[in-house]
Design a protein around this nucleic acid. Structure first.
Lengths: 199, 199
DNA sequence: TTTATAAATGAATATTTATTCATTTATTTG
DNA sequence: CAAATAAATGAATAAATATTCATTTATAAA
């Protein structure tokens, strides 16, 4: 019952399959890295035939790129969830920081995949530039923090990188050592970061 | 004039080639990622024939593994350079932290390569475990810092990860945006970290 | 200078992996 | 239910890549 139903007699495309394919790819990349995946493995993990993969994605490169684009979109959506630039600085900062943490925790496979893509022949410079643009609001927030004398008067990029770097590494370590991340440990990590950057 | 010279008439192996091969591999991995390199490209970049590669390394997997092992060794050597556990805590900490930074800066290709290997089919669990063991002295140092009331009373791994995570991300960003890392910016970053972890 | 030997070469081969395609299956509409 | 059509299949093919090997080159000792 799709848009084409009115003009021709067709078996409709199963849009759920795209998600199956994406999930299978993310799982395999987490397990064996971008260097270790093949199209037939992806098909196998998605429980479809190899040929079916090519109905949905015209090549491996396209598949990787579209998955990257989707991951970036969903990451940015989460980063800025419930964030309003009208909020007080400290509130906005905490909000975004916990959103970043949430994304890394609950979308770990996506994080690993995006990290790997960044140094790969699949992702173009243009795509990388777009990724940078999407974190602009974060940059603005740090600038504001400095202007309001809430943050140390240091290079904005240094502050920004310092703010988020602990998250990536802490979640990575927790996943690999199979340690649960508790609400308390999240707060501890936030406070480490905050004590570092506050004016 | 090697050890075999006394028992047979041979053309000696050019040990310098191993380094050429390693450097070529590191360069290519930095440029296109582990997923993008081929044996013939490595040979080309090392300015030797493809077949010659197989005189020095019996397979691609062996090559990657031996390079990983060498990178890990040299990284650990640098991490603990001029560090003595007899030094006062704060001195030892600063020493190691700057050593970590130096490694990331001056051996950036090695850092990228090791990061990529970690999520790849080339590196075994055993190799990963060994890597963990080699950073034991760092773990001890943090425990000591807590015992001496110099550091916050938080989970040792969290402190450890927090201490080093900024380095990785800051150097990565600086390299890709082609910004020079100055002595002053290094001190700034250290202070961000220190203000976070100090008791 | 000759000889013995392994290094070095790169084209040839083997292997792996991406992609295609002839065939079958499922779905929608008349 | 039949017809029309695209999805789905997986074996076959094409392309890419790892590895081998017959040949040439360089070196060390006699």
């Amino acid at each position: 019952m799709n848009i084409y139903s009115f003009i021709c007699h067709v078996k409709p495309r199963d849009e759920h399959k795209i998600d199956q394919i994406f999930q299978a790819t993310l799982l395999l990349v987490k397990q064996k890295g971008l260097a270790g995946i093949t199209m037939s493995e992806i098909a196998g993990a998605a429980k479809i035939a190899t040929g079916t993969l090519y109905i949905y994605f015209e090549s491996k490169e396209k598949l990787i790129n579209e998955l990257f684009t989707q991951c970036r979109k969903s990451s940015v959506d989460i980063y800025f969830k419930d964030y309003e630039s009208s909020q007080p600085f400290a509130v906005g900062l905490k909000r975004i920081w916990f959103n970043l943490l949430e994304f890394r925790m609950n979308h770990f496979k996506e994080s690993v995949f995006m990290d790997q893509c960044y140094h790969s022949p699949y992702i173009t410079e243009t795509t990388k530039d777009l990724t940078k643009k999407m974190i602009q609001p974060l940059y603005k927030l740090v600038e504001r923090g400095k202007a309001e004398k809430e943050l140390k008067e240091l290079d904005t990029f240094m502050l920004l990188i310092f703010m988020v770097s602990g998250i990536n590494e802490y979640v990575k370590h927790s996943v690999y050592s199979e340690k649960k991340i508790t609400k308390a440990s999240m707060e501890d990590l936030y406070n480490l970061m905050w004590d570092g950057i506050k004016a």
